[in-house]
């Protein structure tokens, strides 16, 4: 199986946010700061890659009727590992992300990749698929956070970019802006990349 093709497929072509419309919750919540988005994206990629790998590893032994429960359990375990890691080494970031790291467990992307790919494909390919999906997810997070942090705070990754002359757009910090920016991103991608035209 062509690894780079798998990666590209899950990162860009079947991107979680702009194609499958999955994982929206966290995309809207943590994107007011780029640093939080990066940490969130990396945590999700970690959990996704490893859980896809593990789920794929035991796919031949998993009974059909407890499939979803087993997947949920494995995903939850890896997310907790990521959570403990953050609490131990980066407690400030862990605090500012609050409950959103724990919410990776219910992030539709992980369950989605598990069902769509890991349940039917070999472990290493599943891990690459997981890495790709995580990468695509992080990319979208950073794109939205770029706009929100720049116009809402005048900073990027905490570094001041726009001077004091900039009047901060409060809406960028608040809930609704994320909806609009993501909608525009989807519009852009649908028109330019997927070239969807009126039939």
């Amino acid at each position: 199986m062509n690894m780079s093709k798998t990666f590209y497929q899950s990162a860009i072509v079947e991107n979680a946010q702009w194609k499958q419309i999955l994982g929206i919750c966290s995309t809207l919540a943590v994107t007011n700061l780029m640093l939080n988005s990066l940490v969130m994206g990396l945590s999700l990629t970690f959990a996704l890659a490893l859980s896809s790998f593990t789920i794929s590893l035991i796919r031949d032994y998993t009974p059909r009727n407890v499939r979803m429960m087993a997947q949920t359990l494995i995903i939850a375990a890896y997310v907790i590992v990521a959570d403990i890691f953050l609490k131990e080494y980066y407690p400030d970031i862990s605090k500012s992300l609050g409950p959103y790291v724990g919410l990776i467990i219910t992030n539709c992307i992980l369950m989605g990749r598990a069902e769509a790919f890991a349940a039917k494909n070999p472990p290493f390919a599943s891990m690459i698929d997981g890495l790709g999906a995580g990468f695509g997810y992080t990319l979208v997070l950073l794109l939205i956070a770029f706009v929100r942090e720049l116009f809402g705070f005048g900073t990027l990754f905490g570094f001041k970019i726009l001077g004091d002359w900039w009047i901060k757009w409060s809406i960028m910090v608040m809930a609704p802006s994320a909806f609009f920016i993501l909608a525009c991103l989807i519009w852009l991608v649908n028109t330019k990349y997927y070239k969807i035209k009126a039939s």
């Binding site: 929206i24 909608a183 519009w187 649908n190």
Partner: peptide
């Protein structure tokens, strides 16, 4: 067209 479905819902 690009906005139909998910885009406009958002």
């Amino acid at each position: 067209v690009g906005l139909r479905g998910a885009g406009i819902s958002l």
